[in-house]
Computed example of a mutant assay.
Amino acid sequence: MATFYDEWLGFWSQATEKRRRARKVIHEEELTWVKTPQDARIALLVAPETGFATWGTASMVAEIPVGGHTGEHAHGEEGIYIVDGEGCSIVDGARYDWAKGSTLWMPFGARHQHFNRGPVAARYYSYMAIHLEHAIGLAQLEQFSECGPTGRVPDVPLSASGLDQQGRRIVLRWEDAPRRRGTEAGAHSRRDGEVPLKADAAMQAQGASNHSLFIDFMGFVGRGRQDFQNMEIEITGILSDEPSAHGGKHAHMEATLYIIQGEGYSEVDGEKVPWKPGSCVHIQGPQTVHQHFNTGRVPTYQLRCSPGIRTHFFQKIAKERFPYLWFETRSSAEVSG
């Protein structure tokens, strides 16, 4: 007679098959746009509902019409990146102004609402872990008001620093995000057939030459977090590679990449996955081997996100069983489309 232990023994093979069958990318033209009480126009990107095997995360893209606002609601942590437009958010009674390229963090349970104060539709990318919350009984989504046209923005205090009263960063503007160049190509590279390098803390902190440019938002492992105190989700920052270059070949736990600029493809566990602006690529983990190639004429900007359960939990406790691996570093050598 089969027991619970027999079922447990099959968990890994079940998960492996689920990952094999899941999607790896979704493109702008494949999105299903809907109206909800919160958003006038919103679509799911990488999420279980769209066929991805995530670690409880969901990413979305939404638009706020000119002269409009979102609903007001509260839920678990959320990371937001402003793809286009300008406006402000009211978070727990304080106003935070934002523009294209800004990154915002909604603390767990914070009441918040977003306002478009510019001449074009404001588009934002959202990253949450609501399915993880649901799995453990913490998914409480409360709606206080619905989206619609704005008469006037509520008169509440402005946070000029982008910090809340507890000293936590709520918004980081594009021009204030730290920039750093990747180290020289060739460092840590491995020949075909060689055992890949296990990443130590120093390699993870510097990115080990994976890309030519890093723009830090909520920060990479081992680096500053710009006063963000996120734990459940992480909009790490921008990964960038020059035209005709490719990033390093490596393997790690779950990450999501939303393409802001440029075009190219990724090799994900041996499969070629093309992308362009508006595409969203899913790196499933726990040791997905992948590499990104810029086949366009401008530097690529990939918005990189990862779940907090990876960054602050499993990446630390499971590093011997599922270590972060490097196979080769970035190169400026010409790549084919």
Rank of each mutant, 00 (worst) to 15 (best):
S240W: 03
N294W: 01
D176M: 07
K272W: 09
Y265Q: 04
G224I: 04
V273K: 03
I170W: 02
Q287C: 12
G248V: 04
S266I: 04
R179T: 15
R190M: 07
E267V: 15
Q165A: 15
K276W: 08
A201Y: 06
A185G: 12
V195E: 14
F214R: 01
P286Q: 09
Q206N: 12
G193T: 06
R225P: 01
C305D: 05
D192Q: 11
R179V: 14
I238N: 00
A177C: 08
G270F: 03
E271W: 10
G247A: 15
R173I: 09
K276Y: 13
F217Y: 15
G182V: 04
R179D: 14
E232R: 10
I259M: 07
G167I: 01
V171K: 00
H250G: 01
D241Y: 00
K249M: 06
S266F: 06
G296H: 03
E242D: 08
G207E: 02
D241H: 01
E184S: 14
K276P: 03
P274V: 13
N294A: 02
E184A: 15
S212K: 11
R304Y: 11
D241G: 02
R168F: 11
F217K: 07
H252C: 10
I238L: 05
S306T: 00
M203H: 00
R190Q: 10
K272R: 15
R297V: 03
I235E: 01
R169K: 09
A185K: 07
P243W: 13
Y258M: 15
E194A: 14
G186L: 10
I170K: 01
S266C: 11
R173Q: 11
M231S: 07
Y301N: 11
E254G: 05
N210W: 03
T256V: 14
K249I: 07
V221S: 12
A199P: 01
G207L: 05
E242A: 06
H282N: 07
Y258R: 09
G207N: 06
V221F: 11
G270N: 05
R225F: 03
S266V: 07
R173W: 08
M253C: 15
R181W: 02
F220V: 10
Y301Q: 12
G219E: 01
P277T: 05
H282Y: 13
R304V: 11
K276N: 12
Y301R: 15
V171Y: 01
A187Y: 10
Q204M: 14
L257N: 00
G219I: 00
Q166D: 15
L172D: 01
Q166I: 08
F220E: 04
F220T: 04
H211W: 14
R191I: 12
P286W: 08
V195T: 14
E242N: 06
A205R: 15
R223C: 13
H250N: 05
S189D: 15
Q291K: 12
P286L: 10
M231K: 11
G262L: 06
V268L: 12
T288N: 03
M203Y: 00
V221A: 13
G167H: 05
G237C: 08
Q204T: 14
K272C: 12
T236A: 07
